[in-house]
């Protein structure tokens, strides 16, 4: 009675469980955050982790990257980072009298873009093409990026001196924006017990190969979404467009990505169909950074306000049973 996709999913379920388990070995925080990270990976999306310093943003990125048997680069974004530092450059080869392209650090499966808002808009926008089209164009040559490709960016919303807030277009490229939040007392005790978690993360054993990740990603589109649920997604998007306090609602791309993220979320539970709960769970991480709110506030407060508004939207829109 099991459908083919279900069989494949059951096969991969172990892998997904192993991946989540692997990350949780070092990241002792909200397990839902870990799941969202995996959702971003499966949905071929990019992840923006935004929270105050010191609660494990980088650790989470490293743990994910290490859990996949893939190339991983961590790029510390600073205000003097140049696009060519990121993408690579053409270097003159005197022997052959030609320019040969020397790939930059972006040619890896997983990129941890640390403190992405510290770099200049010029460098930030260099990431645009890479994130959207999975390719890089330098000096007239176009070079494909490895598959799977994922950017995990972190940023700190508190310090705004010397930072360049991400433009809306760039924010839109991230599938999910995740807040980690402070750990519980129990977890915090675990963290300070004395293990060097960062060292531990760098030495994690990979549990998935890039090919397996690609295969998993291919399954996401096959997850069934009921018509009523599509209606629900559309209703959510429509509600953000008419809600007072939102200057700019969610674009159709936002609705599309919400569907994809819900499918990936269903997949992390080993289901071949999306439930209303999947949509509701991923709606806030997918949507909050896609709306522009009418508020003068900034920093963490602003994120918090967007969050409140999106939760208000979720409370208002009736959900299909």
């Amino acid at each position: 009675m099991t459908s083919p996709i279900k069989r494949i999913i059951m096969e991969f379920m172990k892998k997904i469980d192993a991946l989540i388990g692997n990350i949780r070995k070092v990241f002792v925080g909200d397990p839902e955050v870990v799941r969202l990270v995996v959702v971003a990976l499966l949905a071929r999306g990019h992840l923006l982790i935004e929270d105050v310093p010191g609660i494990g943003k980088t650790l989470l990125g490293v743990a994910l990257a290490r859990s996949i048997e893939s190339s991983f680069r961590r790029i510390q974004f600073t205000n003097d980072l140049l696009p060519s530092d990121l993408l690579g450059m053409s270097i003159f080869n005197p022997r052959e009298s030609t320019f040969s392209f020397k790939p930059g650090p972006i040619f890896s499966h997983i990129i941890l873009a640390d403190e992405i808002n510290r770099t200049t808009p010029k460098t930030q926008s260099a990431l645009l093409e890479a994130m959207n089209d999975l390719q890089v164009t330098v000096d007239g040559g176009t070079y494909p990026l490895p598959d799977p490709f994922m950017i995990i960016a972190t940023q700190n919303p508190i310090e705004y001196h010397g930072t360049f807030p991400l433009p809306e277009a760039q924010l839109d490229r991230f599938l999910l924006r995740v807040k980690i939040g402070y750990p519980s007392a129990e977890n915090e005790k675990e963290i300070i017990r004395g293990h060097d978690l960062y060292q531990l993360a760098s030495r994690l054993d990979p549990v998935l190969s890039p090919a397996e990740v690609s295969a998993l990603q291919d399954q996401v589109d096959g997850i069934r979404v009921d018509d009523a649920l599509l209606g629900y997604i559309v209703a959510l998007a429509a509600e953000t467009r008419k809600t007072k306090g939102i200057k700019l609602g969610v674009s159709p791309r936002g609705s599309l990505l919400l569907r994809r993220a819900s499918q990936a979320h269903a997949l992390t539970y080993g289901r071949d169909h999306v439930l209303p709960d999947d949509i509701k769970r991923v709606a806030a991480p997918v949507l909050t950074h896609r709306i522009v709110i009418e508020s003068q506030s900034f920093g963490l407060l602003r994120i918090h306000e967007s969050d409140t508004i999106i939760h208000g939207v979720l409370e208002r829109v009736p959900i299909p049973l």
């Binding site: 509701k280 009736p318 959900i319 049973l321």
Partner: peptide
């Protein structure tokens, strides 16, 4: 759900079944 609603435990329209 209807029966529970009449018994004083209504579901909010935005609540999913499992919530």
């Amino acid at each position: 759900l209807n029966r529970l609603g009449r018994a004083g435990f209504p579901r909010r329209p935005s609540q999913t079944a499992s919530e």
